[in-house]
Write a protein that binds this DNA or RNA. Structure first.
Lengths: 340, 340
DNA sequence: TTGTACGCGTTATCAA
DNA sequence: TTGATAACGCGTACAA
């Protein structure tokens, strides 16, 4: 592979001049620049990235930290998100280093690969995903003074940049839809609230009921659920003295499980029971009946996160930006007024 | 950030000794090694990756090239595949550089980012995805003498390493299942056969019929289809004088469209029409009736590809390995004997 | 067993 | 406008 030295020898100039010619310095004769460029092209010269980052102070590389055990690995979320991230990098000509590390609440999470990235000067900035409501990586990165953007947010107020879905707003819109239809007994089924997104969705549910002056009946709230817990949870809800007429399932997989369980129990959706899903995936769209759902723009989340990060990597002094993306409610066939 | 020089000064030894102590050379006193390690830890020293790759001849980094426009972005394929790739890298301590480039048949595909990786010495090896039946990247990489593994394969016989799904075998198993049920008129619906996977699935269909001495009726074959073409294609097939009794849809999205179109035309699956999908996604499993499908282990594909590549990056002289992964047929509710 | 000296490919500083 | 030289951090012949 040709180095700058080969080019210099071939064109009969010093290494210095070649470097400046190729980097568009303005103190080099135009004819010289042309000669140099011609030779560089002929020799198929490309600057060595390692030498560049060793000499300069930046690497032209950004790190993306994703969980090793991909939750939501069953749907298109990560495909779309990573597509957005990688596409943005490609357009800007930055390289993308992907590091899959253990879940951030694992005992030695900080010891994992992602520390290699920051301490080995591998990257100019980091986009960290799967942020938990308490996440020690935030403090660590702040201490390192490495530009970073979080996808997701902690609960504490803290001055760092993040992009996140406004889960509470999404839930609020869903609740508003149900309330307007006339529902007053609305149950909430969710996954582990230690996941940031789960936490904020649940919070949104409670807020929405309070603001609507309906009041939040905690017997209608079940979280920490997995798909297989749904039949029992639904049965318990429907056997209450004053059972819910609508259900908000804060993950698409849970919603589908509710649909199946309801059918097995002889309840029709939406006639006997309205149902809304969070996560507007193909699964939800293809269900029968198709489900009313809260959707988020996965690809755009990746794009926004990376755009924000690239700005900050270029100008680390920029103030933090905290951007909440509003989800959309898509009304389909699974919601209707409650039985009179 | 601490460099090796800081460690050397602090421990009162030369840079050389520190380097050897940390890299486990055996010509350094054990007590010295311990002292050095203690100081390195205390100073939070981590070797600079750029300096290492500049000095040595390798980068400890592997490149993954994915299409910029992710086909199959609607399902979990890329999530799972990338998860397998990234997990394997993480376990081996190699960094993963992801490059999203335009589709390989774009006019300037080779000019895209992925050339930066190979010519800028950014990586020790490359895993390229979305390989077409004719793909100029193969020849280019061979010329560069850069270790690489393809996910997917070209049609021409060529000595390079690849991992791919044995699409023909998958289809053969599906056909066998249908033939055993008694079907003789089996239609094939597929996407653009310029995609390698699509090409081999179609080939498997023809081979299976020939081997079963049923003969391949080309009027039952439609390819280059998208989801929206399905209603018309199905109508045309069912209006044939001797219509098919079973359909093999070589992509899950197509299969679901067939299911909907059949229902709209008043045909019951599987009573009037048997249906098999290729790609055993959640969508297919949750369909009603659930679909018999050919599945591939997406995560394992990523793991196998990266494992193969890491072997070759470590020992470039290793002979090429071409590994075909056998898909699995999962029989569900959408297949039954034809009406008598 | 340890230290000296050099080179990897590049850009920046300074002198010509 | 151009060139000689140093520096980035590390590994490694070779010498001590």
């Amino acid at each position: 592979m040709a180095t700058i030295k080969d080019v210099a020898r071939d064109v009969g100039l010093s290494i210095t001049t070649v470097s400046r010619a190729l980097n568009n310095y303005d103190d080099v004769a135009e004819t010289t620049r042309l000669r140099v460029q011609a030779v560089a092209t002929r020799l198929d010269y490309h600057p060595n990235a390692a030498a560049r980052s060793l000499q300069g102070s930046h690497t032209n590389t950004i790190g993306l930290v994703i969980p090793l055990a991909l939750h939501r690995s069953y749907d298109a979320f990560w495909s779309e998100f990573i597509g957005g991230v990688a596409g943005t990098c490609a357009r800007r000509g930055v390289d993308l280093l992907v590091s899959a590390t253990d879940a951030p609440d694992a005992p030695d999470a900080l010891e994992q690969g992602f520390q290699r990235l920051v301490r080995g000067h591998r990257v100019d900035g980091l986009l960290i995903c799967d942020v938990r409501i308490a996440d020690e990586r935030i403090a660590y990165l702040q201490k390192c003074h490495l530009p970073f953007v979080a996808f997701g947010r902690t609960t504490g107020a803290c001055a760092y940049s993040y992009v996140d879905v406004d889960g509470a707003l999404g839930v609020a819109r869903a609740m508003e839809h149900l309330l307007r239809l006339g529902h007053r007994r609305i149950a909430y089924l969710g996954v582990d609230p230690r996941f940031g997104f789960s936490h904020f969705r649940l919070a949104g549910y409670r807020t929405a009921l309070t603001q609507a002056r309906v009041g939040c009946d905690e017997t209608l709230v079940r979280h920490g659920l997995a798909e297989e817990d749904i039949p029992a949870a639904l049965a318990a809800l429907l056997n209450l003295p004053d059972p819910p007429t609508a259900i908000l399932a804060a993950a698409d997989i849970l919603a589908l499980a509710v649909l199946r369980a309801a059918r097995a129990m002889g309840r029709a959706v939406p006639d006997d029971l309205s149902l809304i899903a969070f996560d507007d995936t193909l699964l939800v769209q293809h269900a029968d009946p198709s489900l009313t759902a809260i959707g988020q723009p996965n690809r755009r989340l990746g794009e926004e996160g990376m755009t924000l990060l690239l700005e900050r990597a270029a100008a680390p002094a920029l103030p933090p930006v905290q951007r909440l993306i509003a989800p959309t409610l898509v009304v389909r066939q699974s919601t209707a007024p409650p039985r009179p």
